[in-house]
Amino acid sequence: MARKKTIPMRQMSDNQSGVIKKVSAVGDMGRRIREMGLVPDTPIQIQGRAPLKDPVAIKVRDFILTLRNREADHILVEVEEPD
């Protein structure tokens, strides 16, 4: 059984999936993140990163969303830890 752990979205690797546990962003950034559907218990998958490794593209609720690493830092995701 793979162990589960919670990490910031920035640390996820390409193609890795997980479930959002917490969104700690507040204010304008928090609003933007939430209204695009990044709320707790939402499954996401990392699609890839831009050539300069930032922003990151993720798959969430049937669409692709991009956000910068700075924003991804505020999103905690529960992932399965590879053995």
């Binding site: 304008d28 950034m29 669409f63 692709i64 969303l65 991009t66 956000l67 924003e71």
Partner: peptide, 10 residues
């Protein structure tokens, strides 16, 4: 700079 929360439309 402002957040870059943007949709990549299909």
């Amino acid at each position: 700079t402002t957040p870059f929360v943007m949709e990549l439309p299909p």
